[in-house]
């Protein structure tokens, strides 16, 4: 399946140059008998809906936000495996979380390999947003999707085990990790036989602090949550999308392996929950450590 990872090794187009035709995606199977017509594809959208060209464009646009607005700084990014599958796990915060794009941008520029972000399927249901979300590497968070990415294709997948409970928590609860779901991320990593790489992020809570929740409105609109953010109060309508320029620090913790056989039918729930809780505590400890070192929200 290594050919599936072609986008990572694909040479980047230099800006301004004539856009080269994307190399043929690895879709074709060896055919017998009749020769299949030459692959007529013009885009490089893969089976997950991700397009390396769209990512390239997004990286170019997001670059200034990453380096000038958030001034993202990594610690131990070399702990993320350069080859093979790994499940990146982060703490999730801010009404519109900036952590996902920052991690994806950082890992893709440093490691030159794609990152797929597993997220709530709700994004898919919104016109335009859903399409771009998918082109930029968004994948509906389901165990079978994650398994296919990690095990069959050896990709990097990013997941926030807190789910929507992370970004929907109020500012007074900042950097308090929520429950890590039902430990599904651990079970998926065990089944796929890949390590979990925890990433602790400090600063994301301050990019878009949630002041108040409007659960009824959220329910009426079919949204996972509907927050009133400090950004809205300070910046007005602009604040619904513009985050504050808090300094983002990301620390990659040691990869966690579980010492169990991959592809088992069942993993003991006790072991799964124990590992999940252990990862949560390691991340919580790292967050406290990073917070204690932080001198300023804005300058780090």
């Amino acid at each position: 399946m290594s050919s599936r990872r072609a986008p990572a090794q694909r040479p980047r187009a230099s800006p301004g140059a004539v856009r080269p035709r994307a190399p043929k995606p690895a879709y074709g199977r060896p055919a017998a008998g009749a020769t299949p017509p030459e692959d007529p594809r013009g885009s490089d959208v893969d089976e997950w809906g991700r397009s390396e060209r769209a990512r390239e464009l997004a990286r170019r646009i997001y670059g200034p936000a990453y380096s000038a607005w958030f001034r993202a700084e990594w610690e131990g990014i070399d702990k993320i495996p350069v080859t093979g599958g790994a499940l990146l796990v982060g703490n999730h915060a801010g009404a519109i979380p900036s952590d996902a794009p920052v991690i994806m941008h950082g890992v893709e520029t440093h490691l030159r390999r794609p990152v797929y972000a597993l997220a709530h399927y709700w994004f898919r249901t919104i016109p335009v947003v859903g399409t771009w979300w998918s082109r930029l590497g968004g994948v509906a968070a389901r165990p079978d999707n994650a398994y296919r990415l990690l095990h069959d294709q050896g990709q990097l997948a990013l997941v926030f085990p807190e789910g929507t409970k992370g970004p929907s928590k109020r500012y007074c609860e900042r950097y308090q990790l929520r429950r890590f779901g039902r430990g599904g991320f651990v079970e998926t990593a065990m089944r796929a036989g890949v390590p979990v790489v925890p990433i602790a992020i400090v600063g994301s809570e301050e990019t878009m602090p949630v002041v108040w929740q409007l659960p009824r409105l959220a329910h009426a609109l079919g949204m996972p949550y509907f927050p009133v953010t400090a950004n809205m109060l300070v910046l007005g309508p602009l604040g619904t999308v513009v985050p504050f320029p808090a300094k983002l620090r990301l620390r990659v913790l040691d990869p966690v392996t579980f010492g169990v056989e991959a592809d088992q039918d069942r993993y003991p729930k006790s072991k799964v929950m124990e590992e999940s809780e252990r990862i949560r505590q390691t991340m919580q400890a790292a967050l406290y450590d990073m917070l204690s070192r932080r001198r300023s929200v804005w300058f780090g």
Partner: peptide
């Protein structure tokens, strides 16, 4: 089906192209 030994002649995009012609 591929594991059972079946060999496809067309990929998805190949099918679209032959349909277009």
């Amino acid at each position: 089906l591929v594991a059972a030994g079946f060999v496809y002649r067309y990929t998805s995009s190949g099918a679209v192209q032959s349909f277009a012609s």
